[in-house]
Design a protein around this nucleic acid. Sequence first.
DNA 1: CCTGTTTATCGTCAAGCAGACGACTATGAT
DNA 2: ATCATAGTCGTCTGCTTGACGATAAACAGG
Lengths: 253, 253
Amino acid sequence: MPYDPSAFPPFAVTVDLVVLTVRRHALCALAVRRGEAPFQGRWALPGGFVRGDEDLAAAAARELAEETGLHAHDPTGPAVPNAAHLEQLATYGDPKRDPRMRVVSVAHLALAPDLPAPRPGGDAHSVRWAPVEDLLEQDTGHGREGEQAAPLAFDHARILADGVERARSKIEYSSLATAFCPPEFTVGELRRVYEAVWGVALDPRNFHRKVTGTPGFLVPTGGTTTRQGGRPAQLFRAGGATLLNPPMLRPEA
Amino acid sequence: MPYDPSAFPPFAVTVDLVVLTVRRHALCALAVRRGEAPFQGRWALPGGFVRGDEDLAAAAARELAEETGLHAHDPTGPAVPNAAHLEQLATYGDPKRDPRMRVVSVAHLALAPDLPAPRPGGDAHSVRWAPVEDLLEQDTGHGREGEQAAPLAFDHARILADGVERARSKIEYSSLATAFCPPEFTVGELRRVYEAVWGVALDPRNFHRKVTGTPGFLVPTGGTTTRQGGRPAQLFRAGGATLLNPPMLRPEA
DNA sequence: CCTGTTTATCGTCAAGCAGACGACTATGAT
DNA sequence: ATCATAGTCGTCTGCTTGACGATAAACAGG
């Protein structure tokens, strides 16, 4: 193929973000309301154009910071308090996905601990955390009354679904579930993360045995807390291990 | 963020292909020799520009067909004899990855059975199957004498490494290893695929128990073959199951 | 024909892990 | 004091795996 970089169709390249967190026992995603056409007034995933001299990961980290104030967790940089996990998800390039022109979007997945408030970014448009269940339950007819039923703009429902599926499978074999937790957390809080992301109930005793028995997954900090009620629970930090072997098993039912 | 699609930096979007197969007990990738600058004369992954009205997956399938004659396996279409598995791998967009201009490449991963000959496509440039070990062993000083030691063009070594890692992990929990096999194959041939991709030796008896005991993985065709020498082996086709649960375990050593 | 070699296939056994679930502990609420 | 809640430790059973012995069915060479 004659490789002539000056003769190519014009593309716009954007990053879109699937930012997930666990709030009140539910897996939630960040959604922004669109101010302009197309899809004006509809909810969409946060995102924006990649700048001319910017790496894809840098663009995603910039958008994440603009929308949430969160910093991407960078293994080479210093540890920051409000660090979120950020990784590339997939790229969406259907010629008709944006009615205005050819836009290729490199979607990224971010996992963040529950934040005090979904702080709007520098722009004044409205931003909210919405349960992914609500954002994805469209045109199925069994939505709860009063719920907003308008589907997400563009192909963002598909992107969100892919991101959620990535998160669901990735916490099986990695320690990424800790990215949903504050710096110090209890075994029970971690279990509730798994339960919210997978949408299942887990046995507290087997879960405790599993996570405390996996070397490098959790390191005790020595402290305890009673913020969940009941008997005080040990506090842990995320250990250095990133891969869980053997993995956490998701109940099949 | 004011979303103005008419004001965006110009990008070129390409697809690059990591096409893997197993030849003579080694995991091999398709490489093409570059005819023009930059990196003239160096080996690179096959790829090309995405056309203006073309989906990313369609562009990848087109490039695959041009380079190898293979058709992408499409679940919705009819079964074709020489069908390869094709999936999106990741997107690479470092501003300096192509010295000429800003190029974002959506890499795809293809898994193909061993082909009779690495048929050059419509273009006359040279194409070959090369062991990934040779393509990736650069500047480490311990390459075998006489081996081509020039690293792959652009960031293709990184893309190839990512593709190989994807393939290595994906055959753990999916039935994708059958994509490396002809339509009918024996348990031993499938085992040699795992051994080549993982670079380990597997116990034939435990492997046989595992794959024949996983429902939906393999279906016997009734025939037998002695093409591997020794006692005749049963022939199988790939079953409908795509996910292996529990997964194949890769020896840790 | 007999024997060794190669590959396939079946079986056995012990260790490890997961699911089910009983029991006990330490807090706050009534 | 009693109850409710959540955390933590154990036990038992069944399944899966890894190690490995044994047998089967082909071919090659004497």
